[in-house]
Nucleic acid binder design. Structure first.
Lengths: 206, 206
DNA sequence: CCTTCCTTTGACCGGCTGGTCAAATACTGG
DNA sequence: CCAGTATTTGACCAGCCGGTCAAAGGAAGG
C-alpha cells in the first residue's frame, strides 16, 4: 500500500523498518555524492533491498531526497532555536557554538547532505532558506543586537557572526577529510571545542 | 592530433581556444554538480562544442576533472605560500585572510569545485592533501608557532587557526546561496572583509 | 591546384539510469 | 487453514551515460 501513504493508517513495524533502512542508506549515498551523483541502485544495495522495493516505499528518487532534507531542516535549526534571549549572553552564544559543533561530530552525514545541496545551488531548499531559516535568523539577530546595544557583548555584524559559527563548526564535518589529512594523527574533535570556545570568547568579549 | 598531446609541439591558437572553452565549461558544470553529477553532454553544450569534439581534446571526463583540480591546487595554495615569515606577524596573517577572501570573491567556481571534491571524500586529491598541502601547512605552522612563542601573536592552536581562515573565507563562496538568502538585499562581500579583519585581530592580538 | 595534417561530426555502442508492472511471496485477522 | 492484504521481485522499458570510429570538412604550404 505505501508510497505516499497519505491514508492515516499507523504504519506497521516492517514499514517503519524499511523506511528507516532506505532513509539511512540514502543519507549515506546522497551525502557522499550529491543528488545527481547518486543512483537508486546504490541506495538499494546499501539498504539491502531491491530497487523496485525502494520504489514501493517512496514514489521517486526525488521524494527520498526531499524527505531527508525536510526532515533534517528542523533538527538542523534546533540549536539556534534554543538560543535563549533571557540567558547570559556570552555563555548562551558559546553554548550555541558547542551545540553546533556537537552536531558536526555526531551527524556528519547530515551536515554533508546540506553542504552538497547548498554548494550545488540549493535547488530544492532555496525557499526554505529564504523562509524558515531567514525568519529564525532575523528573530535571533534582534536578540543579539539587543545584547550588543546594552554592551553585554562586543559589537560585530550579527549576521556575519552567525555565518562564522555555522562555517567554523560545520567545517569539521564537511571538510573532515582535509582536516584529518592536515592534522595527521591528531583527532580533530579533541582540540576543536576548546579552540572555538577560545576564539569566540575573544570575539564576543566587549 | 591532441588528446594527451605529449608531443612537445607548441599548441596552436585553435587548440588553446578550445581547451580553454572546455575547461571553463567544465568548471561551471563540475563546480555545480560534482564529478559524478556532471555529464559530458552538459559540458559540451556549455562549451558550444560537440561531445566527440570534447573527447578529441581530452581523453576522458576524468581527465578534464583531473586537469582542473591539479591546475587549481597550486593557485589555491598561493595565498598561504605568500605568508612571509619575516613580515610583521599580525598584518601578515590579516593579509592572508584578505587574500583568501578575495579568492572566494573572484573565483567562487574554483572554490566550489574544491568544496565538492572534499565534501565527497576527496577521492581524486587525497594524496595531494596529504602531500603538498600538509607539507606547506606544516612549514607555515612552524612560522606561526615562532610568532606565538615570541609573544607577537596570541597563543592558539595553529592548525585550527588555519582551518578557521579557510573555513570563514571559503564559506562566502561555497555557501553563497545561503548567505544571500539570509542577508536579503545586503551584498555579502561588502561587510565581510571588515568583519573578518576585526575578528581575526581579536583572535590574534596577544 | 593538390596534398597533408588538423579538426569536427553523425551514427553508433554497451551499459547504466529512473521507473513500471504483473506475478509471486509473505503476513495477518478471522 | 483460508481469504485478503501487504510486500517483494524478475523482467522489462525508454532514455541517457561515457566513449568510439570512420568519414567528412578546413587550413596551410608547396
Amino acid at each position: 500500500m505505501p508510497d505516499g501513504t497519505n491514508t492515516g493508517r499507523p504504519r506497521t513495524r516492517i514499514q517503519q523498518r524499511n523506511r528507516d533502512l532506505i532513509l539511512g542508506a540514502a543519507l549515506d549515498v546522497f551525502s557522499l555524492n550529491g543528488f545527481r551523483g547518486s543512483t537508486l541502485d546504490e541506495i538499494a544495495t546499501q539498504a539491502g533491498l531491491s530497487k523496485p522495493n525502494l520504489l514501493y516505499y517512496f514514489p521517486s528518487k526525488d521524494a527520498i531526497h526531499t524527505e531527508l532534507l525536510s526532515g533534517l531542516m528542523d533538527t538542523w535549526l534546533d540549536p539556534l532555536r534554543d538560543l535563549d534571549a533571557h540567558g547570559d549572553p556570552i555563555p548562551e552564544l558559546l553554548a550555541y557554538v558547542e551545540r553546533k559543533l556537537e552536531m558536526s561530530r555526531l551527524y556528519p552525514r547530515e551536515s554533508r547532505l546540506f553542504a552538497n545541496e547548498i554548494v550545488q545551488g540549493a535547488p530544492r531548499i532555496l525557499s526554505a532558506l529564504q523562509g524558515d531559516l531567514k525568519h529564525l535568523v532575523d528573530e535571533k539577530v534582534v536578540v543579539i543586537r539587543g545584547w550588543m546595544d546594552t554592551g553585554q557583548i562586543a559589537h560585530v555584524h550579527p549576521y556575519h557572526l552567525l555565518f562564522s559559527i555555522w562555517s567554523l563548526t560545520q567545517h569539521y564535518a564537511d571538510f573532515d577529510v582535509q582536516v584529518r589529512a592536515v592534522l595527521g594523527q591528531e583527532e580533530p574533535f579533541q582540540e576543536a571545542p576548546a579552540y572555538l570556545k577560545g576564539i569566540f570568547l575573544k570575539i564576543l568579549t566587549p
